[in-house]
Design a protein around this nucleic acid. Structure first.
Length: 451
RNA sequence: GUGGUUGUAGCUCAGUUGGUUAGAGCGCCUGAUUGUGGUUCAGGAGGUCGUGGGUUCAAGCCCCAUCUUCCACCCCA
């Protein structure tokens, strides 16, 4: 039986022109990361299940792709157990869900080989068993930069500049870097008298933009936040509208952690603004929560204001990511570029630079055995000069050969047929101009150098 | 994971209340042009109507399942 060819849902093939665009994107990100002192690493696509499980919350666990054990995976399995238990019995490996947790494992494992603070970047695919939508895939690339082993807030300032630099270079003109601090959210929970309910308060608050404040209040109520607390928290709504921290200090006056968050936020934003940004708008957003459980300080999210596709970058600070791998007191902060979403944004906006396809500089027409051999000799010299050259592989009709050159967007065509072979000349055709000239080998080289 | 939506030629899409042989544009191939592309003209190829069942004398169209797409939740890049 023949299987109909198809990629799995949420996954895609990449054609040469798409790879060209993606490489340009990666190269831009890589260049900027390196200019800020980050060095590349790679980790395996799969990890032990226990490395990944429980790191992304309950929802995240469900989105992990599990890998079935090899061999007789049912041997000794308690089939009466729960699905989750059976799953962990028959699957000891999983595909990575992001690059941050594998990085934490990496740092802990190689701690004696690294110099701290350690700054690494990583551009690799990740997998999530999510339901696909536009800009939402089951396999996609993340481009992460993290620094571990430093509490300095200068890193936060660096990351804001990196967002600005990369996205500006890629041609995005209108985008917003949203910033908040988990300590501020913790402070709010504290003054509301619900320190233990930080997550409930933040998750509902995060939806403010979408559902409005009445709905947020309703959701708080249903999550068991009492009326007195809600009244205190309501002061937030005004701050959200003004996008300012005005009045926030007063509200957090009795929360040590809240005030600490305020200090951090003010310091980072002030420095980032003083250094200047090219295209980015930098905004405080009290409702920004982000789901990942491990964030403890600054949190970032970048959205394009030109294309509605969700966030294109994210990031934040975590005090203790490697603790679960047996390496306590290792603070870190990092960001991630969602390459595939940025790709989609650039596609939609048609912001790709021209001439990104890797196309040879010249193609030689094939007139037969002897003529082709002469072309091979000439091409050998051309390649030494740094040109990419190729020969049409078979001596078919000129029309077909030229159309091939045209379709591929190759600018120059070299013709060495019977006439040229006997006269020792080369006919060079410029496909853009539609002109052609007959040249000696030296003149031909000169002509190519002139472009 | 929940609710919805989509699928017809390589691409973008028509296809009437179920009724002969499923169409168009673009693209592709061939020729006009046996050493000249992108223009023009003439001709041609290409479809298990996503897949599998079912209802019917008859299904691209109705029903069920499944895969896929996109949307809203959820969550996120």
């Amino acid at each position: 039986m023949i299987t109909k060819p198809a990629t799995l849902k949420g996954t895609r093939d990449f054609l040469p022109h798409q790879i060209a665009k993606r490489s340009y994107l990666f190269d831009t990100i890589r260049t900027v990361f390196q200019s800020y002192g980050f060095a590349p690493i790679e980790t395996p696509a799969m990890e032990k299940s226990e490395t990944l499980l429980g790191k992304y919350g309950e929802e995240g666990d469900k989105l992990l792709f599990r890998i079935l054990n090899n061999g007789d995976f049912m041997e000794g399995v308690d089939t009466g157990a729960s699905s989750a238990s059976i799953a962990s019995q028959i699957s000891k490996r999983a595909l990575r869900y992001d690059l941050t947790v594998p990085f934490a494992r990496f740092v802990s494992q190689h701690r004696n080989e690294l110099q701290f603070p350690f700054k690494r970047y990583q551009i690799q695919p990740v997998w999530r068993a999510d339901r696909p939508q536009k800009g939402r895939y089951q396999e996609f690339f993340q481009c992460d930069a993290d620094v571990v082993g430093s509490e300095s807030l200068w890193h936060e300032v660096d990351f804001i500049q990196i967002f600005d630099e990369v996205l500006t270079r890629l041609g995005l003109k209108v985008f917003t870097i949203k910033m908040n601090n988990r300590k501020i959210l913790a402070g709010l929970a504290e003054v509301a008298g619900h320190s233990d309910r930080l997550k409930d308060i933040a998750i509902s608050l995060d939806k403010l933009d979408k559902v409005g404040k009445e709905q947020v209040i309703l959701e708080w109520q249903s999550r068991g936040i009492d009326q007195e607390a809600i009244e205190k928290l309501s002061a937030i709504f005004a701050m959200k509208e003004k996008k300012s921290t005005e009045g926030l200090r007063a509200l957090l006056a009795h929360s040590e952690i809240g005030l600490m968050g305020m200090d951090e936020l003010d310091q980072v934003m002030a420095h980032a603004k003083a250094l200047g940004l090219q295209s980015a708008k930098l905004e405080f957003d009290i409702t920004l929560a982000r789901g990942l459980d491990y964030y403890t300080g600054a949190i970032f999210e970048v959205v394009s204001d030109e294309v509605a596709i969700g966030s294109i970058c994210g990031g934040g600070r975590y005090d203790d990511l490697t603790g679960i791998f047996g390496m306590p007191d290792m603070p870190g902060v990092g960001i991630s570029f969602g390459a595939d979403r940025i790709y989609d944004v650039l596609d939609q906006l048609q912001r790709w630079p021209a001439d990104m396809m890797t196309v040879p500089d010249i193609i030689f027409m094939n007139f037969g055995e002897k003529e082709a051999f002469r072309c091979m000799q000439v091409m050998k010299e051309m390649r030494k000069m740094g040109y990419a050259a190729e020969l049409y592989p078979s001596p078919v009709k000129m029309k077909k050969q030229l159309k091939y050159a045209d379709d591929r967007g190759i600018r120059y065509v070299g013709l060495i047929g019977g006439e040229e072979l006997s006269s020792g000349k080369i006919t060079l055709k410029d496909m853009q101009e539609g002109s052609q000239e007959s040249l000696e080998l030296d003149g031909f080289k000169e002509r190519m150098k002139r472009g």
